[in-house]
Design a binder for these strands. Structure first.
Lengths: 202, 202
DNA sequence: AAATTACTTGACCAAACAGTCAAGAGTGCG
DNA sequence: CGCACTCTTGACTGTTTGGTCAAGTAATTT
């Protein structure tokens, strides 16, 4: 049955899902293999260790997400709309996941990063890089908004940082309370942090 | 050597530290016993399981923290000062921990809550309750501030919610970036969210 | 057709794991 | 003193863990 197929992708998908639904520590190589329908020998043919697979899930999920973010944060879209679309995108993801597994799962990136940061520097740094990319999207939209006279853009970096933290906090809060309410308020909260002038929201 | 001493407390302390420094999943009962200098039989004399011990660490640490928070959020203190003292308290804690173990550890409550929420409802709910208590401190200080004419208090609950999320996000961010900078900006960020009128800050 | 390559398989290992238990040992009380 | 209670101990069990490996199988190259 050699040289077949999508074994590697199935492993990445299974690992991503399991870590998101539960946690890195409680997800064993055996669980991942079971869900992927793959024998353990194959696992170690493709990946050195669980940590290496986790890194692969980060790269893979980021590569997929980036095209969507490029759409949402397209410089062609009005700045306020970018944030609204982003919030809608996040909410949609969370609703879907809650319907599928019965729990609000929050952000796989933050959860994994938070869990492993003091134990696995490679994973920690990669998560940090990806979060930094999100920051870039925010900062660029803020600059566009202030250039258009829609908001006070005197501190774009600081404002973008606060947005990052707010999104991060909201998803963690939603996971812990197992409640989508904070995510439903995400758009409003982001716009409040941006202090966009009323005209921009309409 | 029976009927001695502080075995139970040592177990709670060891579990708290280990979970904070690494994570719940990577902390085994054996590790906890080792650090506490206690044999495993004793562990199971006091606690049914690791999950029960984790719950005890939550209760224990919250009981200790609450007296400090009552000081900080004393209705006798000016509202703005309460938030500044709180931010200083958080920073102090994080600096201490980073010096001790070389990593920014973030908040044990958020990290644990985030990690176990989809697997252990008892722990999840307890973490949620404790976070809710923090929210109460914030909301009460906000009401006091608005009553004193220091800020717009039209949405005290919503503002307190944003503060909670911001603090939570900041500590998670600090842990992931292994950098205290976000925590050093905590006071400023909290005051920005509160939009306290300049007079209140001076 | 033969050799190489890329993948799969299932059996295997030692270590770590959560949890149990019977036999003590120190303390306080009658 | 001796009983009862609380705690401690170390040896134990069965399972799960991450990880290895030799043998096989199918496509690809030569």
């Amino acid at each position: 049955m050699a040289r077949c197929c999508d074994t590697k992708e199935r492993l990445i998908k299974a690992a991503y899902d399991l870590i998101w639904e539960s946690s890195y520590g409680s997800t064993s190589v055996d669980h991942i293999c079971d869900r992927a329908g793959v024998r353990k020998g194959s696992f170690y043919h493709f990946f050195e260790s669980k940590s290496h697979l986790a890194l692969a899930t980060l790269d893979d999920s980021w590569a997929k997400k980036v095209t969507r973010l490029n759409e949402i944060f397209s410089p062609l879209a009005p700045p306020a709309e970018r944030f609204e679309k982003f919030a809608a995108f996040v909410l949609e993801h969370q609703v879907e996941q809650k319907e599928r597994i019965g729990y609000v799962c929050g952000c796989p990136l933050f959860s994994l990063g938070c869990e492993v940061s003091t134990q696995d520097d490679r994973l920690r740094l990669r998560v940090g890089e990806i979060l930094e990319q999100h920051h870039r999207y925010y900062a660029s939209a803020i600059l566009d908004a202030s250039r258009a006279g829609l908001m006070d853009g005197s501190q774009p970096e600081e404002t973008a940082r606060m947005l990052s933290i707010y999104v991060q906090g909201t998803l963690t809060q939603a996971r812990i309370s197992n409640d989508l309410a904070p995510v439903r308020d995400l758009a409003r909260g982001m716009l409040a942090i941006l202090s966009l002038r009323p005209a921009a929201v309409a």
